[in-house]
Amino acid sequence: MGLMHMKNPANSRKKPSKGGLFFFLAGLIPSLIIGWVIYPMVLYSKQAQPINFSHSIHMNPEIVDGIEGDTEIEKCLYCHEFREDGTFAGIPKLAKCTECHDDPDSALGESEEEKKFLSKYVANEKEIPWYSYYRQPDCVYFSHIAHVKMGEINCKTCHGDHGKTDKLPVYQANRLTGYSINIWGRNIAGYKTNTWDRMKMDDCAECHTLKEKEGNNACFVCHK
């Protein structure tokens, strides 16, 4: 009886330990899949921009000669301009588009996107409801002119090679926060390889520090 007593617990210890690992993994692996694959898919909504605008066509002087500027940055600023008071206009308003595309009946091209642009927006004088990839929260004060003119930072440093793209990326908004995916970064773990991969507070601070502007890491500089 005594032996039986001695063995029995050992038996019962061994048996479940084999199956235990299986069940442990049965919990572990799906949760890794959920966390790394499914969660990001569920978290972000996907919206196509109202019109597929091609930056590369507009930046190509052989196709479009209206965009003036000697340097790349000047060309960006031709449309994404600074207003008279120094504030940054961001995504251009329709009025900027119609500086060149002023005739709704013009044969701009054959593509559906161009037709949509002319018939839906230009003809009705309706603003295009662009999605903004880089809109920061309201509690963040950010001055473009300070970075571009004083800091001499290229657009690309923060926004990537957007100017060379032929298609606008699908806009993805965080369903909880409402912010664009570009703020947290496309990598769900928050890893980045390029300066433009992410736009969180740490990224601002990192650059400030790199450029020996630690003073600008003070809270009130951005959170006024």
């Binding site: 069940f23 442990f24 919990g27 949760s31 890794l32 966390g35 928050g190």
Partner: peptide, 14 residues
């Protein structure tokens, strides 16, 4: 155990 596995796994995800 499965739950523990799941919980542990989640810690290794973002």
């Amino acid at each position: 155990k499965m739950l523990i596995g799941g919980a542990a796994g989640l810690q290794f995800t973002p």
